[in-house]
């Protein structure tokens, strides 16, 4: 009786969130899945009947496969560079004793406070052939012509790393804040140098934060649209850009749906494999 009451209270508490998810995520998703099996239509989003043609088109054209690999590669590079740049920052924010810590914290959060279009446009100003970086380098005589910083994968990675850095820093910071500082002292009292204490004690304990941050950044990087669209231009396209092209520009709703689903499945598979590989066997009290 008591547990029955508790169960209905639980249901009541999660109902609003479940309803939002159902209406705005599950139903549209189901719609996309159905649409991906429809033939293209004339003057309508899709025609009548069902077909595998959209998926056949995707898997028979290496152009799309290469694009998936390219998108995953960008996701991987962005995740790795966010991790390498973000970890020391997270460490400093969690353990630093500087009075300027609130300032550093707001600097880390700053990219989130500027609209994504403005931010990406800012990068085009910096990275373009006639941009600040290239003009400065040419002005100093370091290079003769402009370096290819934009309209390629490099530019997309630079801009996405900047945009997504807070999503790496914040989870790692909170993981490090949860590590008892006396653990490092304990490791050193047992004969471990600072480096060994870091590798054997602090890094494994920061792993939940690293895992969360990496998954967040990876998922956001492979599904990013605005930044790759503005920085990559017409030459380099990620899957998200191609999906939008198919939907908006060429009005191929069924094919676009198939592309979007492939991207989702590939992304989800990567996350599951990553989470499995970095799974933890212990739990903190």
């Amino acid at each position: 009786m008591a547990t029955g009451k508790r169960r209905s209270a639980t249901l009541l508490l999660i109902a609003p969130a479940a309803l939002v998810l159902l209406v705005f995520l599950v139903i549209p998703y189901v719609n996309i899945v159905i649409m991906s099996f429809r033939p293209p239509g004339e003057g309508a989003p899709y025609g009548v009947g069902f077909t595998l043609a959209n998926y056949r088109k995707f898997f028979s054209d290496s152009f799309y496969m290469l694009q998936v690999l390219n998108t995953l590669w960008i996701g991987f590079v962005v995740t790795l560079s966010c991790l390498l740049i973000g970890f020391p920052v997270a460490w400093q924010l969690a353990r630093g004793e500087s009075r300027l810590r609130p300032l550093y914290y707001s600097i880390v959060l700053a990219p989130l406070l500027v609209g994504i279009v403005i931010r990406s446009y800012g990068w085009t100003v910096l990275l373009g052939n006639n941009g600040v970086i290239n003009r400065t380098l040419m002005g100093w005589g370091v290079t003769d012509g402009p370096l290819p910083l934009m309209y390629n994968g490099l530019g997309i990675c630079i801009a996405l790393t900047h945009v997504l850095l807070p999503f790496m820093v914040l989870p790692i910071m909170s993981a490090i804040q949860g590590i008892d500082p006396s653990l490092e002292a304990a490791a050193r009292s047992l004969g471990a140098s600072r480096a060994v204490a870091f590798r054997r004690v602090l890094l494994p304990l920061a792993r939940p934060g690293i895992q969360t941050g990496s998954i967040l950044v990876f998922v956001l990087a492979i599904s990013a649209y605005v930044t790759p669209a503005l920085i990559g231009g017409l030459r380099v396209k990620t899957m998200a850009v191609t999906v939008v092209d198919a939907l908006i520009d060429t009005f191929q709703w069924p094919f676009g749906s198939a592309l979007a689903l492939v991207l989702s499945v590939v992304g989800a598979t990567c996350v599951i494999v990553f989470a499995r590989l970095t799974r933890m066997r212990w739990k903190v009290a």
């Binding site: 653990l183 002292a185 304990a186 050193r188 009292s189 004969g191 304990l205 933890m280």
Partner: peptide, 27 residues
Amino acid sequence: AEKRDIGMVFQNYALFPHMTVAQNLAF
């Protein structure tokens, strides 16, 4: 500290939460 050859017991014990008892002792 790591070269002084001391054994220390901390107020909050400071056991490594990701290691078993045996692994803590083996460290």
